[in-house]
Structures are given as C-alpha cells and as structure tokens.
Simulated scan of single mutants.
Amino acid sequence: MTHPARDLLRTTTAALAPDPEANPVVPRIAAGTAPRATLAALALEQTWVIPADRRAFEHLAVRSEATDPEAAAFFTTLAQGEALAGERLVAFARACGAEEASYEPLPGAQAYPAYVAWLALNAAPANAVLALTANFSAWGGYCAAIATALREHYGLSDEACAFFDFFAEPSPDLDRLAEGAVRAAVDTGRLDERRARMYGRLLQHYEASFWSALSGTMSH
C-alpha cells in the first residue's frame, strides 16, 4: 500500500503545475528566437539566485537538524546541489558574454530567492519540503527545454549547457529524501498540508515573475 506521503507529493505537484503556455521566455529559447541578450540576462539573474538559495537551504538544514533530521538531509542535499550548479553556471555565463560587473538584477526576477529566504526563516521544514518539491518539477522541465535549445539553436557546448543539464536530470535520491521527510512529518502530525500548498502556490507565482521579468529583455 502506498504511503500517503507519496500521494501527497504527486497530487501537490500536479495541483501546482504552471500553465505551460504562461512562460513567455522558455518557448522563445526553445524555438531559437530569443536574443542572446536574454540568455545573458538569464545567466546573470541566476548568479544571484543560486548562492541565495544555497544559503537558504543551508539555514533550513540547520534549523531542522535537531527536530526533523529527514528534512535536514533533504535541505543539505539541495544546498550541495546549488553549489554544484553554481560551478556549472560560470561556463554558461561566459558563453553568453554576460558581464556581471555592470549588471543590475531585475526586481521581478529576484522575488523567488527572496521568498525562499522567507521560507528559510519562517516555514516549518516539512511544509517547505513539500512546497519546494512541487515547484522543482516545473523548473526541471524548463531546464530540459533550454538545454536542448542551447545546443540546437545557439551552438553552445556541453560545458556551457551543463547548468541546465544538471537541473533537467531526474534525481531519485532527492525524491527519496523528499518522500522521507514528508512521510516523517505525516506520521508525526507535523505537516500542515494547507500551508504547504500555499507556500508552493506562492513559489510558482514568484517563478512566473522571474520569467516575466526576463521577457522584457527580448524586446531590446
């Protein structure tokens, strides 16, 4: 018999899935019609997002270590993943000719990591696990589409695409850790499903804000 945690992760992810037509940027990249300035802006925004999310996940891991070790293992793995992604981002930024020194980040694009930081300070760890796991599904799909397009339409190397390859690949270990954390919270009555879904809904809105902000670079 399937544990409720697995069903909860599946149904929450499905309920929070964004409208695939709502993203104004990824389809343009997938078609090869987004300008390279948009790719550069994507790289530069991620140079702000990735380290911020890594520190937020590290904080969540520390917060949950004593009382919620399953969640702590999930957040530790997330933080390690962000560190690896940050290393891979360098080659993409270089391939796009991104110039960090003169770049001003877009407020709409930085709402997502700001909210992740809010979760790190305020959310019960298990609720954050459920919300983040639901959100990651959409992000992975976007990265898969971008990775393919960068090779086919923009001539980028495997090294330059590695950042998107990393997020596009399924992560059975992370899925297992997420299920373990949600399972432990369900079994002990520590999961607030309504609040977790609210967090997930806000994450999806802030991710939509990220892509909406980037869409402004396509008219330049």
Rank of each mutant, 00 (worst) to 15 (best):
P172Y: 01
Y142E: 03
F75I: 00
G155E: 04
A138C: 06
E104Q: 15
I146W: 06
E70L: 15
A111H: 11
P113I: 08
D192Y: 05
V129S: 14
L191H: 02
P107K: 06
A128M: 07
V186Q: 03
Y115Q: 01
S157D: 10
G86L: 09
T67E: 10
W139C: 00
L177W: 13
A114S: 11
E100Y: 14
F210C: 00
P170N: 04
E169P: 00
L156Y: 15
A126P: 04
T188C: 03
L177Y: 12
F92K: 10
N122E: 14
A144D: 11
V129T: 13
A117I: 04
P113S: 06
P69H: 13
H153E: 13
Y103C: 05
A111T: 15
P105R: 10
E159F: 05
F166Q: 02
A128D: 10
E169M: 10
A185F: 08
S209D: 14
E193H: 04
A184T: 10
D175K: 09
Y115T: 02
C161L: 09
A181H: 09
T77C: 07
A91C: 07
L106S: 10
T77M: 02
P105K: 08
W118E: 14
D68C: 04
R197H: 09
G97N: 06
L78E: 08
A83I: 00
G200A: 07
D165E: 12
S209H: 12
A131T: 10
M198G: 13
E70H: 15
H205R: 14
F74C: 02
A134L: 02
H205C: 05
A160V: 10
Q110S: 07
A149E: 04
V90G: 05
T67Q: 09
A131R: 10
L177Q: 14
G200T: 03
Y103S: 06
G81W: 12
A79M: 02
L119E: 07
A162G: 04
T133V: 13
P69G: 13
Q80Y: 10
T188H: 11
V129L: 09
S157M: 03
A101W: 11
A178K: 12
A79G: 08
F210D: 02
L78S: 06
L202Q: 14
F163M: 09
P172C: 07
T76W: 06
R197A: 03
T188R: 14
A145P: 03
A71Q: 03
T188E: 15
Y103N: 03
E104P: 00
P107A: 11
R201H: 12
L191I: 02
R195P: 00
A126V: 11
